[in-house]
Design a protein around this nucleic acid. Sequence first.
DNA 1: CCCTGGCACTCGGCGCATACGAGTGCCAGC
DNA 2: GCTGGCACTCGTATGCGCCGAGTGCCAGGG
Lengths: 338, 338
Amino acid sequence: MLSERRLQVLRAIVQDYVGTEEPVGSKALTERHSLGVSPATVRNDMAALEDEGYIAQPHTSAGRIPTDKGYRLFVDKLAGVKPMTAPERRAIQNFLDGAVDLDDVVARTVRLLAQLTRQVAVVQYPSLTRSTVRHVELLSLAPARVMLVLITDTGRVEQRMIDCPAPFGETSLADLRARLNSRVAGRRFTDVPQLVEDLPEGFDLEDRGTVSTVLSTLLETLVEENEERLMIGGTANLTRFAHDFPLTIRPVLEALEEQVVLLKLLGETQDPGMTVRIGHENAYEGLNSTSIVSVGYGSGGEAVAKLGVVGPTRMDYPGTMGAVRAVARYVGQILAES
Amino acid sequence: MLSERRLQVLRAIVQDYVGTEEPVGSKALTERHSLGVSPATVRNDMAALEDEGYIAQPHTSAGRIPTDKGYRLFVDKLAGVKPMTAPERRAIQNFLDGAVDLDDVVARTVRLLAQLTRQVAVVQYPSLTRSTVRHVELLSLAPARVMLVLITDTGRVEQRMIDCPAPFGETSLADLRARLNSRVAGRRFTDVPQLVEDLPEGFDLEDRGTVSTVLSTLLETLVEENEERLMIGGTANLTRFAHDFPLTIRPVLEALEEQVVLLKLLGETQDPGMTVRIGHENAYEGLNSTSIVSVGYGSGGEAVAKLGVVGPTRMDYPGTMGAVRAVARYVGQILAES
DNA sequence: CCCTGGCACTCGGCGCATACGAGTGCCAGC
DNA sequence: GCTGGCACTCGTATGCGCCGAGTGCCAGGG
């Protein structure tokens, strides 16, 4: 177990390193923080911290920088979440209040997060898995052509074109629309398959083929859309910490384009609260020198999706966590209102 | 007017520079291209080309690199469009054929363009301005709450929530839906305002407020959605030509996030064919060291949106133009089919 | 037992001088 | 108008030496 002072030393190292982006030495530490002890003592503490793997030297006889393990301890034990100031909270609310639809909410959220944290922001579209069906609409575009429109309670809309095996009358369509909605409206997506199973039986023989086609398209849409989408913003911020590496920024950009990877990382944790994944804790190799701060958000108490930021491991964790938490909270409010 | 050989020298310089990314000298030129003259002669030609502003020296006594003006001449007069090979064409078609909806078409197009050109790809969603209304759907979610869903002939769907000034019955809604569609279905967006102008008059006094609200929301949606959206991909490719500059990549990333800027640049040219904007020809400062190759695409003969790539001015113009043109053609086919 | 000041040592970064070589412009000759 | 030759330029690479921040270790003192 580390002594209290050594923890303070670690905290000071993290803070200084995050601020200056340069390895921090014992002398500088004692000057900038009132630890009440001499550099020599700090050196001993640093040696101990290094033995334990919390900090490391990039080169012999240089200052120390925190390791992933050091950041982990910092986040878990040494740092709180820095709350947003009142003006910041107002700005967040104002900015989000102007949104006109779901796309706009997500787009604004991404911009906002990117600006607040000056890092890359990632916002997952509200998930369909935990959502409910608000309405299913069927439109006849041609005698044997139907458009299926699925509307969720989060305001998301998905549509599919369906080529029917046989012409399908306007009255049959209205009938199907009514029966379908009476069964699935307000229900969870996961429940839909059972709910519509026996629906074709209520129709004339000639229409059953079309009804089945429509239903299977609906189920397909539900499944496909479980591959949720992401919106990403603030990639220009990557250049801020790229003086050392076009080498490091490339895999990050690649990871950001591979939305599957990001979705997996975001989804991995079931923790309802905030998650911080530091450096090598991210399973994906290209993100080994970044940290991801994410949190669930949703309209009710229930989280329906995640949002977060991707930044260098040397990030301002308290500030970032504060911003992420605040934004998630306000987005939840906005979604609940609409 | 430049002599034939001098044009050949310019062409050789552009080709070599694009290949090697290094300033090209007179000796290397004669070795790699059979110009039939000695380096000294080439030097004279190069001096002439430099006087005319087609090439420049980064430093005294280094090789020459093409200027924007040089690239311009190259693109206009010296280079053709390199057609895709048959296997490439097949690959494009296969890749695009798998798309399930409009979002997917656009997403696949972006990926494809980025991979083919190894640059940043930009695809504008099919524009609503030149599109027609396929269907307007109205859904009653609560007594005084209506959802408006607008479906375009390109398969795009937009939805808006409407709070009605007064409760609105299911029958009135059905009535409005029918009347609205009979007027606007199949019509161009730009024509919609006149077409619905007198619609409220056919309704009971108590319903007119709601009808007006719905109509104005519809018109609003049309206008708002004229701010078209973009999808961008392949940003990781920026790092390929960034060994010299994290300084150059940043403004490009910023420009890519400012979709307004890109939309403006894409929209600026009315040329139905391919447009190449080289370096400073781009009005936006951050893109002064990039070139944009863009072309319109659409389902009929008519272009409804643009797509293209953003890359360094030192790009392979013939190849890029070939890829852009081919992709645009196939996307048009896909859209026409659906 | 822990803290402290002192001291020798390490090593990366910076400035400087030098050498190298690619490339140029010019000129005289064919 | 093309060519070969030649002197010149200048950016880059290389090697060297210095400097200083920072360390580890140790002996002494509370």
